[in-house]
Design a protein around this nucleic acid. Structure first.
Lengths: 226, 226
DNA sequence: AAAAATATTGACCAATCGGTCAGGTTCGTT
DNA sequence: AACGAACCTGACCGATTGGTCAATATTTTT
């Protein structure tokens, strides 16, 4: 109340989050990006409840009310971060081509998924956090979209198995195994690091990991000939 | 202040948590058990920060101050739950025998680990939560104990590989792959359920899972002969 | 330049939560 | 019965935190 107390009011009040006109501002685009980047890190490190808006705002270089100006609720921000990376998470699976060489398609899928774990480990960890706790906030969003793609690709893999081009393994379990293994190196990186002292960001270790996974999943553990 | 305000005081005050004499009471044993059971569920579902003492106390059928009477701090309870299941978590690996048949030892290890995921899925999820967030509270406790056993068993596996009894795969990666796959069905159960509609508690699905994992890890994905 | 829209913040609030405390009840022992 | 130890609870407190609001600063538009 420094001076002047007449008629001014800041805004129409009810909807001050989104932009009035349809398209977004330069400043808005930049800030939303910074916020989403910061939120990804903090949510991955602390989980949904553990993360605080203050923490994210500080990391994004702004005040808490300013962050809330762009994302009205913590949950909104959380879901925005997940949606932003969902496509990247699903892309490797989508890229499987039914008309390619089966063994090579699967090997390429494994390697793409591992590359994602290397490139976006925090995104992987954030998904892991959410799913471990039963996907309470992501809910059906992920699962509906997921099931369709998985069913589709499982059919492709089953076709390969029926044609004798790959071993006769259940396609769903094959997909689960690939998910499990490739994501393990991102989600449980702290454990891997504790045991062997390296992570996927180490180029040499990445190549070794890739080779070992490819070998085990494609050729198995049993000796080459008996 | 109903009446009588003379000399009585409840307790010596400073140490009222632990029992005065060495051994524990019947009531204490029962309550601690209930609390640890309840805490495991809640911590697995919500993570450390997300879980509340009230929630755990309610699930254990007692008041919050009463729970705090047995476990003075939330962190104490958290660590107690982890320690209580750590042995079960490590046991399958410890049970690997250097003088057994290599392929059978590894297959048995895989199956023991999967059985743990079936029997104690919440324990697995609680460990997963902790490790994903960098094991901030478990810290070196798990990792020190872990590394020793892993190094030991990795040496055993390496010996088998050198002797040509199994394929020449890096033993550490082999262990990571087995961890990843077997724990996946507990930690990401909600995702598995969303895709195929079943979990390890379904006997038929459990047998299928066991068979698929054994097949992929032992024999690989490539067709049996070319 | 002035008005309008957008961006930013300090101060504040209500709810939640970890933990304390004084006192009361039950249990085991003699 | 009685006495101390163990067990239990309602009430409370301080700190944290998600979210609001009025007011101000900055940018964009006319």
């Amino acid at each position: 109340m420094t001076r002047a107390t007449k008629t001014r009011k800041g805004r129409p009040k009810s909807e001050l989050g989104p932009p009035a006109n349809g398209n977004r501002t330069r400043i808005r685009a930049r800030n939303e990006d910074n916020i989403l980047d910061a939120a990804l890190e903090v949510f991955a490190d602390c989980g949904f409840k553990g993360a605080t808006i203050d923490q994210i705002a500080a990391r994004a270089g702004m005040s808490k009310p300013n962050l809330l100006y762009y994302f009205r609720r913590k949950r909104d921000l959380y879901l925005a971060v997940l949606e932003r990376t969902l496509d990247m998470w699903l892309e490797p699976l989508s890229a499987i081509r039914a008309d390619g060489d089966p063994a090579e398609e699967i090997r390429a899928y494994i390697n793409r998924k591992l590359a994602f774990s290397k490139l976006r480990p925090t995104a992987s960890r954030m998904f892991a956090n959410e799913i471990i706790q039963g996907a309470p906030l992501l809910g059906t969003v992920l699962q509906d979209g997921l099931r369709g793609i998985v069913d589709e690709k499982a059919a492709v893999i089953r076709g390969w198995a029926s044609a004798g081009k790959i071993a006769d393994v259940d396609p769903y379990h094959l997909i689960f195994v690939i998910w499990a293994v490739t994501q393990h190196y991102a989600d449980f990186a702290s454990q891997v690091e504790a045991v062997v002292g390296s992570g996927l960001s180490d180029r040499k270790f990445f190549r070794e990991t890739e080779a070992a996974i490819d070998h085990i999943l494609l050729r198995g553990i049993l000796p080459p000939e008996r």
